[in-house]
């Protein structure tokens, strides 16, 4: 009871042990050089690799496109991939992956870890648009992503997970998955502290919790350069959710009229998304979506993020 926590802020306690210890595998910095976003630092060690294709984007677009690759297309048990991204003032970086991030089977209960620290300076934009994480049966995965933003920096972040290798019958069969996304404004004001943990050792099990859904996604949009996108996505998602829920409502009320007939099996919608604004000024938007197929989630992401094309030079998730 008499522990003095006055000297240690609770915020420090919150992140303690989450980002410390592991060796840095890579670091990448993009800055504005002669009026154009350019890579000024790129360093990566095994098993991480950055691929920065030249001329991949139309010449009128000011952005650096980076693929973050890992040998083996994923993270093996016991490995920790830890890298930093730094976006300088008024520059733009888009980080993609070349496919799903596979999290392989856990050996001797070891965890696969992914740690990412990002900072975006004034007027900069970071777009983190990876393909989904796929956890194999018995996999253990922990992901921590921390973003330090200048008040007028911009960020679009997609973080998503599928149920596993469905074709092999692995549906929500992993042992442990935890994803933490912390977004701070100027290092100390928390804007979004999002943490989801799916631990299969606990009852109810993950598959009991997820029901018929195979894909869950979280999308976060913040900043002046994405203000239009944010408003557009918000209105789209609200319309979409209203349509899905209220059309069901009418059919279910007509069913309720026939009280004598036995109730049908619970049939939740195949896709649902909802959104919430965050931050004191409501200038951040969190979208959460659940889908029964990866294809429908790709479709949703493609549709909602299409207006990023003028800024990033390509349509996100267009190839999937």
């Amino acid at each position: 009871m008499d522990v003095d926590i006055g000297s240690v802020s609770l915020m420090d306690l919150l992140l303690k042990n989450q980002i410390e210890g592991p060796k840095l595998n890579g670091s990448l910095r993009v800055e504005r050089v002669y009026g154009k976003s350019s890579t000024t630092r790129s360093y990566a060690t095994y098993p991480l690799q950055f691929m920065i294709p030249k001329k991949a984007l139309p010449s009128h677009v000011d952005a650096v496109l980076v693929y973050a690759l890992t040998f083996g297309g994923g993270i093996v048990s016991g490995d920790c991939i830890f890298f930093e991204l730094n976006v300088g003032a008024d520059s733009t970086m888009m980080l993609l992956t070349q496919g799903f991030t596979n999290v392989y089977k856990s050996v001797e209960g070891k965890m696969s870890r992914h740690i990412l620290k990002c900072s975006v300076e004034s007027g900069g934009l970071l777009a983190l648009l990876p393909d989904s994480v796929v956890c194999f049966a018995t996999a253990r995965y922990s992901q921590v992503q921390r973003f330090n933003l200048a008040p007028d920096a911009s960020l679009v972040l997609v973080d998503w997970l599928t149920s596993g290798r469905i074709a092999r019958g692995e549906v929500w069969n992993f042992e442990y998955f935890k994803s933490t996304n912390h977004v701070y404004i100027q290092e100390d004001t928390p804007l979004l502290l999002d943490s989801v943990c799916l631990d299969d050792h606990l009852s109810p099990s993950v598959s009991e919790r997820m029901g018929d859904y195979h894909v869950i996604a979280m999308i976060f949009i913040y900043g002046p350069r994405l203000a239009e996108l944010r408003k557009l996505v918000q209105s789209n998602v609200e319309k979409l959710a209203g349509g899905i829920l209220n059309n069901r409502r009418r059919t279910s009320s007509s069913r309720a009229d026939q009280v004598q007939t036995p109730k049908q099996n619970p049939s939740a919608p195949a896709f649902l998304a909802s959104c919430s604004t965050v931050g004191p000024l409501g200038d951040g938007l969190v979208i959460r979506a659940a889908a029964t197929t990866t294809r429908s989630m790709y479709g949703f992401l493609r549709e909602q993020l299409a207006t990023l094309e003028p800024i990033l030079g390509r349509f996100p998730y267009a190839d999937n």
Binding site: K16, C197, L202, M210, G242, L245, R249, C275
Partner: peptide, 30 residues
């Protein structure tokens, strides 16, 4: 027994579907 007496850094949600559904509450017609 599993979740009591835990420190703040272990605070997380475990049922993302409830957030997806509940977030759409304002869109319900009635």
């Amino acid at each position: 027994t599993r979740y009591a007496n835990r420190p703040l850094q272990d605070s997380y949600s475990t049922f993302p579907l409830v957030d997806t559904f509940q977030g759409a509450h304002d869109q319900l017609f009635s």
